[in-house]
Write a protein that binds this DNA or RNA. Structure first.
Lengths: 222, 222
DNA sequence: GCCCGAGTGGTACCCCGGTACCACTCACCA
DNA sequence: TGGTGAGTGGTACCGGGGTACCACTCGGGC
């Protein structure tokens, strides 16, 4: 039995969800909330398996509520629902820690399948959104096919040299690297030199780029 | 009516798919292939709406076949199926241009829903894989919430300075930037200096890191 | 016993990168 | 009309980065 908290500012919408979810034996609606603040409180009290969360609500919206529920360490998984397939919503929801994102025009069986998947720890994305998400994924995620030229160059580095490369990727100077690794700057220089040679890089700048390309360094913006 | 090409080296498996797909009015199996080479040829001939592609096959595997079908500009969408939820497969398949990735133990209605979604141009990912894909997505995709500190620093750059920053992110030296932009090296130096000052970066190395963090530069490995 | 690779350390040298400071043009706007 | 910011250009200086070359230790394998 999967317990569900329904969050939506429209009473009629909540009623519809309750009707649907209580009509099947595997799910049970244990509570309803009309806005974000209430949702956060009820999630803490009721500890439902799944929170069915609307995005657009007066007061605290669904994204923020999702963030707080996840941050509070509740066991509940959040499945976000919206009528609009706006990219920002999807991104924001996923970043907020949502386990899924579906459109409200999903067919009942899709919704139930989504709740089922989320309840067991899987994640779901509406097919219409998956396409765009994958496109973006392909844009961002570096292609490191094992055995590629870049991979082989990386493999040719020794353990120590890889550490040095990571340090270079953090933007540290030779002096800083020497200090953190408790080495002489000369040693760091020889290491750096060998790293550059093995990678076929001209500067440490190109080494940094290489590190990002192969995924050794990762964006970590602030 | 959605036309489907079934690709699998196991005759029994193909038979199962054909039974399922031909049992509903909306889909029709128009061909079967036992390996990648045959799949590529038949996709070109039959031009099916959807190719149901197994990954593990003797000879050319499903990933390579997917790549070729997509590269050939066929209208067919490829839905990749596998019994293993190995990460490399998922990545490789998506990079190859697959529109979806499902596990063979999917329930029949899930498979049909997947085919339906793929046929209309959407994409599908098995819920069990979506979770990991999203985790990775969150790791890779830089969170540039508009108005963040990084964003504001980036906004403070002039048009020209942003161009310079991109060039730095490519690993070009001041001399190379000067040559490509048809400028004197002095000018480039002043620009670079201003960029570093505005970003609060010490070197061009840190500028490169900044560029990757905000997504101005992107991994593009080889 | 030997050699080899990895790790460490040093010296010497040169050049690119970064800084400080200044000057000119041009478009735009009050 | 004058001011301002962006873009361009220059000179001079210095320090860190990169290179070349060498030397030592240490562990493992032949």
């Amino acid at each position: 039995m999967t317990t569900v908290l329904v969050v939506d500012d429209q009473p009629l919408q909540r009623f519809g969800f309750r009707l649907l979810l209580d009509s099947v034996p595997e799910t049970e609606v244990v509570g309803e909330a009309a806005h974000g603040t209430q949702a956060v409180r009820m999630a803490a009290e009721l500890r439902p398996d799944v929170v069915l969360m609307d995005v657009r609500m007066p007061g605290m919206d669904g994204i923020e509520a999702t963030r707080r529920i996840v941050a509070a360490g509740e066991r509940s998984r959040v499945l976000v629902l919206t009528t609009f397939d706006l990219d920002e919503y999807v991104h924001a929801a996923l970043r907020a820690g949502a386990s899924g994102f579906l459109l409200k025009d999903a067919r009942p069986e899709e919704l139930l399948a989504g709740i089922r998947a989320v309840a067991v720890g899987d994640a779901v994305i509406a097919p219409a959104l998956t396409r765009r998400l994958l496109d973006e994924f392909a844009r961002y995620v570096p292609p490191h096919p094992a055995g590629s030229a870049a991979d082989r160059r990386l493999d040719s580095l020794t353990e120590r040299e890889r550490e040095i490369l990571v340090a270079i990727g953090k933007g540290w100077t030779n002096g800083e690297i020497a200090a953190r690794f408790v080495l002489s700057e000369s040693t760091v220089k020889t290491h750096v030199g060998r790293v550059l040679a093995k990678l076929g890089a001209r500067d440490r700048v190109q080494a940094v780029i290489f590190a990002y390309d192969v995924g050794l360094a990762r964006p970590n913006a602030g």
